[in-house]
């Protein structure tokens, strides 16, 4: 049983057929690169996994169960997390609050008033998560907007990991980062995989994909053009699939 299984997934927007029968698998602890030119269908495919889009045809199976008809919230509860390219961080809120955004734990104030956000617990658990990931941030009490792009990316990852996901989809996590920040994000991905989390990495940066991913899936006009193991392929071959020049 694979962690994620897609079978013949199709999706059209009006007359435009974006996905034309995608079949692929992702195992637990595996890092898969999802490649393809703009408009190949990468984002649409991932949204059928997170549940933002409903597939027109085909089956999405997660941990052996059919989740095709489940809404995004339920899929998230089952362990599918997505980290968006724009990171979806609130820049003026502090690091800890961002990690718990939308899922703030509460307690009773003075044992009476319910719904009091447990800031002490947020800070404690956020600090623990930041320490565990080895993320270097000056403090969890400063606004996220004051951090560098790479630090913000790691905070977005920390948020995704706080609720013990089983599959993490990352959309261009290294696109906006300085070189040395890229390495720390890639190291983080490696550790996630070592912890048994399945990772799907959408990226245009082939260097990063070759460093982090053991498998690469190339989409082309809504179909899987290639599904390659890293040790059996080369950058040149992957590029030829992406641009559609492969014989």
């Amino acid at each position: 049983m694979s962690l994620l299984e897609l079978e013949g997934v199709e999706k059209a927007f009006g007359p435009v057929q974006v996905l034309r029968g995608i079949t692929l698998k992702v195992e637990a602890g595996e890092v898969v690169g999802l490649l393809g030119d703009n408009g190949a269908g990468k984002s649409t495919l991932m949204k059928t996994v997170t549940g933002v889009y409903a597939a027109d045809r085909g089956v999405v199976r997660f941990a052996g169960e059919d989740v095709t008809l489940l809404p995004p919230g339920e899929r998230r509860r089952r362990g599918i997390e997505m980290i968006y390219q724009d990171l979806a961080l609130a820049p003026q809120q502090d690091v800890a609050n961002n990690i718990f955004l939308g899922r703030e734990p509460t307690r009773r104030l003075w044992g009476l008033l319910p719904g009091h956000v447990d800031k002490a617990r947020i800070d404690r658990e956020a600090q623990a998560m930041v320490d565990r990931l080895g993320v270097r941030v000056p403090s969890i009490h400063i606004p996220v907007g004051m951090l560098s792009g790479g630090q913000q990316q790691t905070i977005a990852i920390a948020r995704a990991l706080t609720f013990a996901p089983r599959l993490v989809i990352m959309d261009e996590p290294t696109a906006a980062l300085a070189v040395r920040e890229v390495n720390s994000v890639l190291a983080l991905i490696e550790r996630m995989a070592a912890d048994g989390i399945g990772v799907i990495l959408i990226s245009h940066r082939l260097n990063d994909v070759f460093q982090a991913c053991s498998r690469m899936v190339v989409l082309q006009r809504g179909t899987v053009a290639a599904d390659l193991r890293r040790e059996e392929t080369s950058m040149a071959e992957v590029v030829s699939y992406i641009v559609g020049a492969h014989a």
Binding site: L87, A88, A90, P91, Q92, Q93, L101, G115, H116, V117
Partner: peptide, 16 residues
């Protein structure tokens, strides 16, 4: 409260 936290988050970044 969560209502307050969410209010600030909404004003900060609606997409988030």
């Amino acid at each position: 409260t969560r209502f307050g936290h969410h209010t600030l988050a909404l004003g900060d970044n609606e997409a988030a």
